[in-house]
Design a binder for these strands. Structure first.
Lengths: 175, 175
DNA sequence: TTTGTCGTTTAGTATGTACTAAACGTAGTA
DNA sequence: TACTACGTTTAGTACATACTAAACGACAAA
């Protein structure tokens, strides 16, 4: 690697680490992704150890997380027991993958929690009428907001089939 | 408060706490917002202490954070030294406010970090040519992705002026 | 089988942070 | 002035978690 370019790369890696922990992810993830993203060839775990300064254990767990989110991709070479990884360069694909990940876990729980609360409230006659009505109203407003988010999210996840032209259309409306 | 409704409310509060810490925010924030959102009238700090079980200190700092994000709003009553707070019920307004908050802080730093890297790279002639070209290509791809995000984000922030019809249009395209 | 090279897992550690408890500052009230 | 009722700030604590170091398991080669 050219020494002139090294500080620039290092700065980029630091920046991505910052973003990473800003979004609540381990900063090692950001660093690993940054290194892979600026690498012309897939890298092995040991090479990542070399480049990031993290230990193999940390690399192992973070790499698994990044794979699960679709931000990096394992590359296997025949007759080579090492695992190699490369960065996903299609960010829209990565965004979809991340949304899919997050969606399933916690967001759904929140949505169904609200839905459950509403149906319980509607079932509980005999309680204070005005307060009950108020709670139902508030929760339904929240629910419709969640629905909008859900529509948006699942729309984005289907974005590959809709084609990149869709993104342009949306941006044109918003611009 | 009707005792029949209490467990439902409590369940909702717990759920919002969960979401809150899932998104990297203190779970106390979620709880406070939930309590305020389900309250017909604005609540004072001491009432929030009562409802959430947190101490006044924690309430104080979390309430400040929620205000800054635009998720709740202070309400002052004449001839009453207490501060009261109520939840923002326009979630789109809250989203805009949160985006504005996040945008300014870390995202911009990332964007300008990439831009800076690119211009440094373009200035550093004499270095390894093929690698330099590769880095520039990758960073420019990342930059255009950031630009798209930025366009989207600032568009959402201007969404009140564009009107709610815009949201409908966007969702129609995506649906 | 033994040996070496992988990735994974585990136990321990350090760091950040959200909280509690209590002191504090401030502004109305007697 | 002293007193009271607030919200804020600070010092300390508990807890979560991302990491290190090292043991472990799997697998291919000798």
């Amino acid at each position: 690697m050219d020494e002139t370019l090294e500080p620039i790369r290092q700065n980029f890696v630091d920046g991505m680490s910052g973003i990473s922990q800003f979004w609540g992810l381990p900063k090692g993830m950001g660093a690993i992704f940054a290194v892979l993203y600026l690498s012309p060839a897939p890298l092995s775990l040991d090479e990542l150890v070399e480049e990031t300064g993290l230990t193999k254990g940390a690399i192992s767990t973070n790499v698994r997380g990044l794979s699960r989110m679709g931000l990096i991709r394992p590359v296997t070479r025949l007759a080579d027991r090492k695992d190699y990884y490369e960065a996903e360069t299609d960010f829209y694909k990565a965004v979809r993958s991340i949304l899919k990940e997050r969606q399933s876990s916690e967001f759904d729980r929140a949505v169904s929690s609200v839905r459950e609360a509403i149906s319980k409230l509607e079932a509980s006659a005999g309680a204070d009428e005005s307060e009950r009505a108020f709670l139902i109203e508030r929760l339904k407003a929240l629910q419709s907001f969640f629905d909008a988010l859900d529509t948006l999210s699942s729309a984005v996840m289907r974005l590959d089939s809709l084609g990149m032209a869709t993104i342009q259309n949306v941006l044109k409306i918003l611009k």
